[in-house]
Design a protein around this nucleic acid. Sequence first.
DNA 1: CGGGACTTTGAGCTTTCTCAACGATGGTGG
DNA 2: CCACCATCGTTGAGAAAGCTCAAAGTCCCG
Lengths: 249, 249
Amino acid sequence: MSLGQSPTPTECGACDARHIGLCDALSNENLESLAHVAQRIFVPAGKAFIEEDSKASHFYNLSRGNVSIFKSLADGRRQITGFIGAGHFLGHADSGNYRFSAEAITDVRLCRFDRAALANEFIKFPDLKSRLLEIVTHEMLSAQEQMLLLGRKTALERVASFLSSWAKQSGACQTQNSDQTILLIELPMSRGDIADYLGLTTETVSRSLSQLKRNGLIDFHNARNVTLLDAFRASNSPHIDLAQQLARA
Amino acid sequence: MSLGQSPTPTECGACDARHIGLCDALSNENLESLAHVAQRIFVPAGKAFIEEDSKASHFYNLSRGNVSIFKSLADGRRQITGFIGAGHFLGHADSGNYRFSAEAITDVRLCRFDRAALANEFIKFPDLKSRLLEIVTHEMLSAQEQMLLLGRKTALERVASFLSSWAKQSGACQTQNSDQTILLIELPMSRGDIADYLGLTTETVSRSLSQLKRNGLIDFHNARNVTLLDAFRASNSPHIDLAQQLARA
DNA sequence: CGGGACTTTGAGCTTTCTCAACGATGGTGG
DNA sequence: CCACCATCGTTGAGAAAGCTCAAAGTCCCG
């Protein structure tokens, strides 16, 4: 696979992101125009590729792997504001500089667009701009959801909400066990990353997961692979108070 | 002033919002086209005018007063995700329904746009859509800033950050005292609203404000009018750790 | 098979919350 | 115009959730 070069039509066709995110707004022929201003980039796990406050020179479309978006305070406290998966777009800025950092969680492949060149594409293809507006609107509303979590939910509720939303976002695999329907989810990020996303400490995340397991809502033998059991989905329904149910258990 | 009707050119010209937000993207003549699909609405203090999960039928442009945007949990816990002032735009949705509620803090005047009609204006005036993209992008990035506050800052830091950002957002008045430059800010919202915005309780907000006052960073004799003193700006600079400084004091 | 990083668990502590009382403020009706 | 009442804000004391520090367990990966 070519790296540092524009993706070929074949590559675009094979990209995990072809039918989500920004690229989905374009026909195959128009996609080629977009591809001309893109470069394929590889970022190894653990490496940052956007630094907060640096010049906002590019947009990125993630074609494979997972990325965390975060902000930091001077003393090192860190808040992850989102986990991004294949097909998703990042690099929004409202001034000349990025207002967040981004780091590869797993090995990552992405398409990098020069900002000015992409602006031209937006003029050529108004649908692209509409799509971007939809994307940003969705991100903004999700951010409000996360504020509710950070400001008002208990540790247990945060962890449960996270599992539930990650299951959706990552397209968890649903399988039929002997006696129940379970949802297998894979967590590419560490407990520390989850903690930084949920405004907790690693220890509290670990304890909350253990409690969910003790109470028969989830199961795991390995930190990165969790299964959501029937009871989890039931307790996560809006009609039931998770904390209350667990207090009873 | 006409209510429930489209604003006249004179009214638009006199509107506090004319040169901010969405309307600023249009010339006077194009503004008239936009005005045709708008209705002037009055909402008294304390009244909600957007209900979470209700049909997303309108956009709103606030011309006077202040509004809070919030989300609630079933048991009544509430998270205010933003305070909106004159000139600002609200009503974004990524599905058929609103994902937040909105309530007037003070008496409020706003322009209400039918969603479908506004979509037509977006087609007629592409600049309008670009402007909306800028607005939403800014909101999304501000939301990330707030996540950092909610997830990682102490109560004292949250209150200080809030005062500082509200001073900017509301255009606080700066005056020269005998010995220092002070910033007068007016808080239209209650302590309870501030608490719901910062993920704290009323009591903790009150205690934090009292502590900032005891330490000579702010002053107030009246709950709704606060002045930021020199020491506040100094301690709020990125180079100084607020908590550390107050521990010393 | 060994070492480093990650995860889990435990014990004690800190911050913030809860509950309660008191004080201030603003609006209303006598 | 004043007194009263309701609401809002402040302060205090005790409780609780989550954090810190510490140690033991687990999992990769070489």
